[in-house]
């Protein structure tokens, strides 16, 4: 299992710098926003947390369609499936390595983008915390979509359409926890804890469903 994690991480960093492209996409989305809403710093700092969350959400969907597809195309998936390891555990590990290689670098770059949005240090810290807690849920839900679209040649767009409605709760609680941290009357703890709960819940449900779907996908 450890070997799978290490191999996937190694692949992610070796092939075309996947993490770099993700961060770049994140940066482009964040940069595009002021052109649409205008360079008013007060407005930007107000909508900053929301923009960062949407950008991170879109960026973490990138590459998810390849989560199992590459392994299926080169025959690796067949060999992995027939070994004695549980498929749920395999999917969990693959999600984990995908998040470590693509999600985490993205989150670590967030403070810089927060400065572009003229956000306060507290707001940046809140976005950072909610993203760290919330984005794994996106990966775990995305794994289900990735397993469903594994045999489709252009599953990427379909995956986004399938997954985006399902991650709305994550976005809701992520953004409201962030605003809870910076605006006084709104609570921070309860949406943050719900966000944690969502991630824990989907870290179980996602791998189980995706593993089951992968086992059915081998014809």
């Amino acid at each position: 299992m450890m070997s799978l994690l290490l191999r996937d991480m190694r692949l992610a960093f070796r092939v075309g710098g996947g993490a770099l492209t993700g961060i770049l996409f994140f940066l482009v989305v964040v940069t595009i926003v002021p052109f649409a809403v205008g360079p008013d710093l007060n407005l930007l700092s107000k909508i900053g947390p929301a923009i960062l969350w949407i950008a991170a959400l879109l960026a973490s969907l990138l590459g998810l369609d390849r989560l199992f597809q590459q392994d299926r195309e080169d025959g690796t998936l067949d060999v992995i499936i027939i070994q004695s390891h549980s498929l749920t555990a395999i999917v969990f590990i693959k999600c984990l390595s995908h998040w470590l290689a693509n999600g985490l670098p993205l989150i670590l770059a967030t403070p810089i983008f927060g400065l572009f949005m003229n956000m306060e240090p507290l707001a940046i810290a809140a976005v950072l915390a909610t993203l760290i807690v919330g984005t794994p849920a996106i990966t775990f839900i995305g794994a289900v979509g990735a397993a469903a679209t594994v045999s489709l040649p252009r599953g990427g767009l379909l995956l986004a359409v399938l997954i985006l409605p399902l991650v709305i709760p994550v976005l809701i609680f992520g953004v409201s926890a962030t605003y809870g941290a910076i605006q006084d009357p709104a609570p921070f703890t309860s949406p943050f804890l719900i966000l944690c709960a969502l991630t824990l819940f989907f870290s179980v449900l996602g791998p189980i469903t995706a593993g089951w779907m992968l086992a059915q996908s081998t014809d």
Binding site: V15, G16, G17, L20, T31, P39, L41, L115
Partner: peptide, 27 residues
């Protein structure tokens, strides 16, 4: 730390173009 001033924004876009080219050359 940052204002969306015309000159800064242009340099930021230049940076993005550079990064895109690097990503392409790596891919």
């Amino acid at each position: 730390w940052w204002v969306w001033d015309a000159r800064l924004t242009s340099v930021l876009i230049l940076f993005i173009i550079y990064m895109g080219l690097i990503a392409l050359s790596r891919a």
